[in-house]
Amino acid sequence: MTLTAQDVADITRLLEESSFDELYLELDGLKLSLRRQGAGGAPAAPALADSPPPAAPRNAGPAPDVAPSPQPAASAPSARTAATQSDVQSVAAPLLGTFYRAPKPGAAPFVEIGSQVKEDTVIGIIEVMKLMNAVRAGTCGIVAEIVAQDGALVEYGEALVRIDTTGQA
């Protein structure tokens, strides 16, 4: 199953005309993830295989349809563009569970601030009922921030670490 550029354009238009903020489409061997810019969270990006769809919990509810904006309409998109162009990406928890920074108690953490990571670098593990799930960076770059506490309960979609994708050696 493949999608043509026209298909994607059609699907995007459907989302724009709908009242929904996000759309996830899964076909055989293909995942398409679309998100309205106003919906908060990470900018729309093609989802990588294995990677969780939303990069961060939505920071605000859906925008009201006819709320007067305190800012000129034009300034909002430019502010969003700036955010989009920022090169720090969050690695989101792919499932709810207990987050561990190290493979076992007392061991060195998988990553520290400044660690160089690749897409398949493990940044931590999430335990769900004694099942350990490795969480991978999903992008290349340098760890800029460790957000989640070791041993803490993390929700689905919660930011675990942030990665500066410009920081490549």
Partner: peptide, 20 residues
């Protein structure tokens, strides 16, 4: 607590996630 994506097989129907 956000326990998973919209699809219930990955959220509301996950015994392990609910107990965790």
């Amino acid at each position: 607590l956000c326990i998973g994506p919209a699809r219930s097989t990955e959220s509301y129907l996950q015994v392990g996630t609910i107990v965790q």
